[in-house]
Design a protein around this nucleic acid. Structure first.
Length: 428
RNA sequence: GUGACCGUAGCUCAGGCGGUUAGAGCGCCAGGUUGUGGCCCUGGAGGUCGGGGGUUCAAGUCCCCUCGGUCACCCCA
């Protein structure tokens, strides 16, 4: 236990054969398969960017004042550059879009990703220092159909995984002009009540007042009921695009609730904002979040805004939700067959036979080292092998193998030349 | 970063007010069946009681520090 090395705080190994779905590799593979399939169906192209990015990209992209940038980044210096382990993927994707001049390609860009991210937070349920996100972005248009499409592909992933008990909430944050006007009104309303605010909200009042809207403090929620409404301040374009989005979602029969208190924690969001929540996964209940971020590109150096909308989703939270919703999750894969050999000569022949069966496409296992038949049979059973192929001197002399069906217990003698065909036939 | 709870075999846990060889179930290995799994029976291996310090004749048990885990705050996917 001690003396050996351990995974560092808030990180974990994903393994085969564990009882815990959250770290069971078969569950991850299944979820990833579904994500790739759904994204592919919707015409999104995969993009993989480095785990390491320039610190400046993330700091300017997400905003210096956000908690993620100001206290949750893993950064290090080497030479005269500062590197960061990416805390999210939207800024890196926009960086790639600009770097590879994707705006020069015809039409809009539909991109999706899956990969690890890092945040130096205190771990708890649904929150880890290395965690995994998947997401999709549509870059190059402010058409509200893009907002609807991003939500549609997101919902399709959960739908395909049969996770149907998540709730979608949407809101609009207004554009670059209307948001500051609202911000001003909110500050004006809250300032006389400064005394009633929590310490955290008081600090936000000057730094990022919109974040006060999603407070959990009861007294503040009551106070906010009388606050100016964001919806009353937003510009015509944002309002029209928000109405269009709602109409599209209704037509697509994607159910949602409007939540005027919904705000996002990163600076780059404007207009559409949305979040998908699941009630069964603890305090970190957001499965996915997203929205429009037309201002990200100029924040990281582009000469003009690039209209874009997307979502990001947590893989760990998705798996926790699937577990909470009692969906059946993949276990270790069974074996088609298992080789059992007795003695050194047969052990060598069985090993060669094993390889030819594998070449035929069968999933076949075998213990190495010379153990008793009983021990080998037990291993075959544990591996949930459908059939066992027994080979010893007796069989080899006659050029046959004894094949045992592990469900019925039935045993047959099969000529080696017909072994593969025979195994395949009985599997079907 | 703050707080609460928890660290005893590979896993899940038991160990009344400190008392001398630290236990169980499951798992693992072997045997019962000179070539046959799942059930059953028998035996075996496996533990510096997270680490360090202290109190005491005596510490898994009490105290302090430390590391790790879990959950919550905060934050966010």
């Amino acid at each position: 236990m001690k003396g050996t090395f351990q995974t560092i705080e808030g990180t974990s190994d994903l393994l085969s054969g564990t009882r815990r779905p959250l770290v069971r590799i078969e569950v991850w593979r299944h979820v990833e398969d579904v994500i790739h399939t759904v994204m592919h169906r919707h015409g999104f192209a995969e993009i993989r960017t480095p785990v390491l990015e320039p610190t400046g990209l993330v700091a300017r992209g997400l905003g210096q004042l956000t908690d993620v940038v100001s206290k949750e980044m893993f950064t290090f210096e080497r030479g005269d550059t500062s590197y960061v382990l990416r805390p999210e993927l939207t800024a890196p994707i926009m960086r790639a879009y600009l770097q590879h001049h994707m705006e020069q390609k015809p039409g809009v860009r539909r991109l999706y990703y899956i990969g690890p991210c890092f945040r130096a937070e205190r771990p708890q349920k649904g929150r880890y220092r290395q965690f995994h996100q998947f997401g999709a972005e549509i870059i190059g248009t402010n058409d509200p159909r893009a907002d609807a499409e991003v939500i549609a592909v997101m919902m399709d992933v959960y739908q395909t995984l049969e996770l149907t008990d998540a709730q979608l909430r949407i809101n609009t944050l207004g554009d670059a002009e209307s948001r500051p006007r609202y911000r001003e009104a909110l500050v004006k309303y809250l300032t006389p009540h400064t005394e009633a605010l929590s310490e955290i909200s008081r600090e936000r009042l000057s730094r990022n007042p919109l974040r006060i809207l999603d407070t959990k403090v009861e007294a503040e929620c009551v106070l906010l009921e009388g606050a100016p409404r964001l919806l009353d301040y937003i510009d015509e374009d944002s309002r029209a695009s928000y109405e269009a989005l709602k109409g599209l979602l209704e037509s697509l029969e994607i159910s949602f609730v409007e939540d005027p208190m919904l705000v996002r924690g990163l600076d780059y969001y404007t207009q559409t904002a949305f979040e998908l929540e699941h009630a069964g996964i603890g305090a970190q209940r957001a499965l996915a979040g997203g929205g429009r971020y037309d201002l990200l590109a100029p924040a990281i150096g582009a000469s003009q805004p690039v209209p874009a909308v997307g979502f990001a989703a947590g893989m760990e939270r998705l798996i926790l939700a699937m577990e909470a919703s009692e969906l059946s999750l993949p276990e270790e894969h069974p074996f088609d067959a298992w080789m059992v050999a007795l003695g050194e000569t047969a052990g060598r022949e069985a090993f060669l036979l094993l390889q030819t069966l594998r070449a035929e496409g069968l999933r076949v296992g075998m213990e190495l080292g010379y153990r008793s038949m009983k021990a080998q049979m037990r291993l075959a059973n544990r591996a949930r092998a459908r059939q066992v192929v027994i080979v010893a001197d007796r069989e080899l002399e006659a050029e046959v193998a004894t094949v045992k069906d592990m469900n019925t217990g039935e045993q047959l003698t099969i000529p080696l030349a017909q072994l593969a065909d025979n195994l395949i036939k009985t599997l079907n």
